[in-house]
Structure formats: C-alpha cells, structure tokens
Amino acid sequence: MEENLKTCGVISSDEFKNCKGWPSEERFSKGPVAILECIEEIPCNPCECSCPKGAIYVGHPITNLPTLDESKCVGCKSCIASCPGLAIFVEDHTFSDKEALVSFPFEFIPYPKKGEKVSAVNRKSEVVCPAVVHDIYCTKSNDATMIVTLRVDKEYVHQVRSCKMLGD
C-alpha cells in the first residue's frame, strides 16, 4: 500500500506537490524561512493571524490551505506554536557552510537544554543524524509549546522534524 498522510501519517512526495507552504530552494538559500506542512482542507487559520509580516494567507473559506508568501517571511518562528497541528517548521540553510538550523514545536518533558546533544528524527521517528540544541524557548503566547532549534548537517535538514524524546 502506498505510504502517504492518510495511510501512515507521513506526507508523500506526491502530496507535497500540492502543499502551498513549501518555499523555493532559492528562498531557502537566502535565510530562515517557514515551511507549512499543511495539505488537508481543515477549518483552521491561527497561522494566518500569528504572522507579524502577513506572509501567511488562508482567507475565506477557512478551509483553504495556507499559502506562504516567501518574499514576506523572515523566518521569525512566530507561527510555529500557533499551529494546533504542529505542522509548521522553520529552516535556515545559511547558518554555516556545513550546518543548517531547523526549528520545530516540542511538547514533551523533560525539555532538551541549549547545547545538549540529541538525536534528530524524521517524519517517521527514525534517527537521521546527531544534532546540537542551538536554541530552545517558549513565549507566554506559545502556552507551553517549546520552540526547539537544532543544528544539523545541511544534507539532512529537510528530513529533520523533531528530536527523540529525552525520556526514551
């Protein structure tokens, strides 16, 4: 059976083609930018209201898929914790020659600490590479959803979507 969002919970490459929240490679090369991994028409729009730059558009009806205006997005991460589906990530491919940053929401205790070495995992929970916690923070409006930023080998950045839970 084909592996996709509706059979196993992982978006297939075919399904990603319909995603309106995936920036161009050119945009990735210019600095941090958000990725909206939202491909189902569910009635939801907090991401649109969370963006201080007006870079996310849902409009009416609110079942529209969110569209990213990559020229307006500055990769500020404000949208990450607004998504009830935990489907927004920020990647920064310009961090260094070899390493990139990837930020994601994290809702498990204990939280990783800044500077800690962790295992970066992909959408299927498979460990893809070692990583260092570059930053971790939570604002009041995030309401306990931590924003974790990992430093990973550039080669794997598109795959990394979280880190292994520390309780494991």
Partner: peptide, 9 residues
C-alpha cells in the same frame, strides 16, 4: 493528517 503526523513523528 496533522494529528497522525504528530504521533508518527
């Protein structure tokens, strides 16, 4: 799907 992705991750 996003809920499924969350637990799969």
């Amino acid at each position: 799907g996003v809920h499924a992705s969350k637990i799969r991750r």
